[in-house]
């Protein structure tokens, strides 16, 4: 006969060893898992390292410049494209009136080209922080030259000021021929606003189309600048 005490001890031993084995297997499993995770982390760290090197390599300024020249119309920022923050007008609260032009901005804005020059001239507040207006950046190769020419001859294409809707005198300018492509984000935004107003479908084609529309309207030539963009919804 097996003594009761023996039985009790036997049971205890069995249970204990069972738990022991179970725990030990669990630990082993967890350790394997941990090791594999660690390996994976190390691998990921290595790939991150490789990717960072690749990122730096692909961001080589020489390469970026070449790509920008090939695939976009963006060029290095010019001095004329800088504008003081104070020179950027606030968005008018009422939708109706023509953006009130400060007295010195009444100087007719030359030409069809991106207009930051005039915006700058309008407010060369010395202390104001400078913001870059990337808006009118682009323009295809010959355009920048045209800008300068326009600047030198501010009377080109301007006509006598006419009364705008709100009755404020604003220099009306015959919009000159618009570039075929939408070159500036500003022009695109202006056209988006116009298209929105008309409820039309917004396409790139309509972007240049709206510029044609603006021919008919006596509006500020600042159409393509930030300030004009705000008033264009009129």
């Amino acid at each position: 006969m097996i003594g009761k005490s023996t039985l009790v001890w036997l049971c205890l031993a069995t249970v204990a060893s069972g738990i022991l084995y179970h725990t030990s297997y669990r630990v082993q499993e967890e350790q394997e898992h941990l090791a594999s995770l660690n390996r994976q982390i190390a691998q990921e760290q290595q790939s991150i390292q490789v990717l960072r090197a690749e990122w730096a390599y692909l961001n080589d300024p020489t390469r970026l410049e070449r790509l920008a020249t090939e695939h976009s119309t963006l060029r290095p920022t010019k001095a004329e494209q800088m504008v003081a923050l104070a020179a950027v007008p606030m968005k008018p609260e009422a939708p109706a009136p023509v953006p009130s032009a400060p007295a010195d901005q009444a100087k007719p804005t030359p030409g069809p080209a991106p207009v930051p020059e005039s915006t700058y001239v309008a407010s060369a507040a010395p202390a104001a922080p400078v913001v870059q207006v990337a808006v009118a950046q682009a323009a295809p190769a010959p355009a920048p030259k045209a800008q300068v020419v326009a600047l030198k001859a501010p009377d080109v294409q301007t006509s006598a000021p006419v009364k705008a809707a709100a009755g404020k005198p604003a220099p009306a300018v015959k919009a000159a021929k618009q570039p075929e492509r939408v070159d500036s984000i500003g022009a695109l935004m202006a056209s988006l606003d116009a298209a929105d107003k008309a409820g039309g479908k917004v396409t790139l084609a309509s972007a240049s189309g709206s510029a044609a529309k603006s021919k008919a309207k006596p509006i500020l030539m600042a159409e393509q600048t930030l300030s004009a963009k705000l008033g264009a919804a009129r």
């Binding site: 941990l34 995770l37 660690n38 982390i41 760290q45 290595q46």
Partner: peptide, 12 residues
């Protein structure tokens, strides 16, 4: 406490 990989220096 099991050691994790981030505590170790990179292989480089």
């Amino acid at each position: 406490v099991a050691e994790n990989a981030t505590a170790r220096p990179l292989p480089v």
